[in-house]
Write a protein that binds this DNA or RNA. Structure first.
Length: 405
RNA sequence: CCUAAGCGGGCGGGCUA
């Protein structure tokens, strides 16, 4: 509720109560969490204007917020500004920047900062290593993640539950199921107790690898160990079951979760719609779409994205377009994914002018194209031999500093 | 004196690459 927070800050100032350094840090943290990075920066500058010096807490919060908003350049700027002012970042500041950079794909720079950290006598702790490992896993860079894991152990930092969960998740993402199984075993051998997140990451890997029966065994193991399934575990099982060709089981899973007092959330409904569409069970999918509304769960951009994608898959362009408009009419803003899909659909229908309009529209709504959007545009233009437009898009991507993949 | 900062799991998009 950042609007209200802003109001309170104004009220405070009107009453001649001026924020101190801690208050500023707190506010910057708040804006960072809400991805209001412009406000966070504004507060940071205001604080300096008022001759309050930002502490490492202030800067860590700001760096985190900037990274979270994907403004890595600014985050790096704040970090280097701090160093040039002679302030020594502490372990949290270092970890914040390392985390942001590695999640954002700039893991080489993250590793450089890790080295710098060690040189300055700041010891990376388990969170620092976990952050880097997680970032590398998100970038599908299993080899580097493994190397950092080894380094961590050599440095005498004991991996914890989060470390193993990240590794298992990373291995499952890149389809290295056997290694994931080994890591899960290693975790247990080292007496690190897997929690619901570790189990869920592993179960997802088993589902993706087609080992549905094994996934069910792991569920029993969880229950035996007294770990209750949560809504994320259920989502994983539901989509896993449908993709394993057991869509009847998905319905049982939904009933199970309801009877254990857990109402299905948006991701559960979305997963059901997604799974049912994928296997061509259109009536089921439609039924779920109605059910969710009657249960008071409102569809979001992901829901519409799933439906639009399904329609595009079967070549039903007109209906896809209709659904996209329905979404906008309901006041649900399209996001980078829905726009990218629509652009793709327009190109497929040979309508490149409209595809380009859609691209302009998304930008005018403040939605930044990502590497997939750019690739879709470039591919669309190249496909019809419109090199000039393709080049324009490519240059724009460069200007926006979106890395080609 | 009190107050502020960092880590892990689930759902949709591009590529006849």
């Amino acid at each position: 509720e950042w609007e209200q927070a802003k109001g309170l800050i104004d009220e405070m100032k009107k009453n001649q109560i001026f924020p101190d350094a801690v208050m500023y840090s707190s506010v910057i943290h708040g804006f960072s969490v809400c991805k209001k990075w412009e406000d966070a920066i504004a507060m940071f500058h205001e604080m300096k204007r008022n001759e309050l010096s930002p502490s490492s807490v202030t800067r860590s919060s700001l760096i985190r917020g900037l990274c979270k908003a994907g403004i890595l350049k600014e985050a790096k700027g704040i970090f280097h500004e701090m160093k040039s002012e002679g302030a020594i970042p502490n372990v949290v500041t270092y970890t914040s920047i390392i985390h942001g950079l590695s999640i954002g794909g700039e893991w080489e720079e993250a590793k450089t900062i890790l080295d710098d950290m060690k040189k300055n006598g700041i010891c990376p702790d388990v969170i620092t290593y976990n952050s880097l490992i997680h970032g590398l896993c998100v970038c599908n860079n299993w080899e580097e993640a493994q190397a950092v894991f080894e380094e961590m152990k050599r440095a005498g930092i004991t991996p914890n539950c989060n470390t193993y969960s990240s590794l298992i998740h990373g291995l499952c993402r890149v389809g290295m199921l056997e290694e994931a199984k080994a890591t899960f075993q290693e975790m247990k051998n080292n007496r690190v107790i897997p929690d619901v997140k570790s189990y869920t990451a592993f179960i997802q890997g088993l589902c993706i690898g087609g080992e549905w029966e094994e996934a069910k065994c792991i569920i029993y193991e969880m229950k035996r160990n007294g770990i209750s399934l949560d809504v994320v575990t259920y989502t994983t099982m539901i989509l896993g079951s449908i993709r394993a060709g057991r869509w009847e089981e998905a319905k049982n899973i939904v009933s199970d979760m309801c009877s254990s007092g857990m109402p299905p959330d948006l991701a559960i409904y979305n997963s059901l719609i997604c799974g049912m569409s994928e296997i061509g069970k259109w009536e089921e999918a439609k039924g779920v779409f109605c059910d969710m509304k009657s249960m008071g769960v409102s569809p979001n951009a992901v829901t519409y994205g799933i439906i639009i994608h399904a329609l595009l898959q079967i070549g039903n362009w007109e209906e896809a377009r209709g659904i996209f408009h329905e979404m906008k009419n309901k006041g649900i803003l399209g996001d980078v994914v829905t726009y990218s899909m629509m652009i793709h659909g327009l190109f497929q229908n040979g309508n490149w002018e409209e595809a380009r309009d859609m691209y302009f529209e998304m930008k005018s709504k403040g939605i930044s194209p990502d590497v997939v959007t750019y690739t879709t545009m470039i591919h669309g233009f190249c496909y019809i031999g419109n090199w000039e437009e393709a080049k324009l898009v490519f240059c724009e991507m460069r200007q926006q500093e979106v890395q080609p993949d």
